[in-house]
């Protein structure tokens, strides 16, 4: 059961096994994904929060979790025992990422291109290719007030292994809690890897030609994946009504509109969530959750 405090002593109860996994995404960056995700988490109070934006994780700035556990995420990476004089040409031939090459008769390894598939170990000269663990990022876990089970992935700069860190996050998803997933921007593999586990995706957009363009692409991704979705318009008041017309035409529900308010932007700049800035947002985010529950029935 999760108790919800809307500030008006209204309590909604859900049956066990009936918890929602909600992802918050957007094509365009900086539209307010994290603001909405942390705003919802603070409003429902008891949930699991996963920051899947491992290249630029920011939710911890707002939720200020008490970090209890930091775990390295590693990948296997080969090294080549060149002193054995073995012939590594099979590895060079096999590697689809061009991470191994022969340059002037010497085997050269480009770690930044390696996906860690283990192919060179499989096809290479026996005993002459070894592997070691390389750190690509971290999983950071803790508790955020009042009852948020907080987990974030953090990619090491220089590593290409966004999806390796995200795959590690997958292992922590707790079906017994309501799960809030803060996604990376874009519409390619890291976004898909983040939304794929969710029952519903909130697309946060802004009412500008840029917001619309990226909303169209991300809505198409969700449609293809078969994930129900709705839209929150942020910075409502700027731009035009083209986002609303798009949602109307495509039967996408507009769940909420957040006004263009310099004071919300200022609070955000200091790491203050919307429910902390103004309590009315608790009620409004709870209404969003209610809408999603209705949509998901």
């Amino acid at each position: 059961m999760w108790g919800i405090n809307t500030g008006q002593a209204q309590v909604t109860e859900r049956e066990a096994g009936d918890k929602l996994k909600i992802s918050i995404a957007s094509g365009k960056g900086g539209t307010g994904k994290t603001s909405v995700a942390v705003g919802i988490a603070r409003s429902i109070e008891y949930c699991q929060f996963l920051d899947y934006d491992v290249e630029a994780p920011n939710a911890s700035i707002f939720l200020k979790p008490d970090i209890k556990n930091v775990e390295k995420v590693t990948m296997r990476q080969p090294y080549f025992l060149t002193e054995t004089g073995a012939d590594f040409s099979k590895c060079v031939e096999f590697c689809r990422y061009n991470a191994v090459a022969y340059v002037r008769g010497k085997v050269v390894f480009f770690p930044e291109l390696c996906h860690g598939c283990g192919g060179c170990l499989l096809v290479g000269p026996p005993g002459a290719v070894k592997e070691r663990d390389i750190e690509v990022g971290k999983i950071i876990r803790g508790r955020a007030s009042p009852g948020i089970d907080f987990i974030m992935g953090d990619l090491n700069p220089g590593s290409l292994r966004t999806v390796t860190v995200q795959a590690k996050l997958d292992e922590y998803i707790d079906e017994k809690q309501t799960v809030i997933i803060d996604c990376p921007p874009g519409t390619s593999c890291p976004m898909v890897a983040s939304v794929k586990n969710s029952d519903f995706c909130i697309l946060v957009t802004e009412p500008t030609p840029f917001g619309l363009n990226d909303l169209e692409i991300s809505a198409e991704v969700l449609r293809k994946l078969g994930i129900p979705h709705g839209v929150i318009i942020n910075r409502d008041g700027i731009g035009d009504d083209s986002v609303e017309r798009f949602c109307d035409k495509n039967n996408i529900k507009i769940l909420e509109k957040i006004p263009n308010d310099i004071n919300i932007a200022k609070a955000y700049s200091d790491g203050i969530t919307m429910p902390e800035y103004n309590k009315k947002w608790i009620k409004r985010f709870m209404a969003v959750i209610d809408l999603i529950e209705k949509e998901n029935k």
């Binding site: 994290t34 290249e55 630029a56 994780p57 920011n58 700035i61 700069p157 220089g158 955000y268 700049s269 200091d270 790491g271």
Partner: peptide, 21 residues
């Protein structure tokens, strides 16, 4: 970048990347 705590955090990561290269 922008003068938000999120902006600063991501700015530093982006700078680590340009330093790396």
């Amino acid at each position: 970048t922008e003068p938000t705590l999120s902006g600063i955090s991501d700015f530093k990561k982006a700078h680590e990347l340009t330093k790396f290269f």
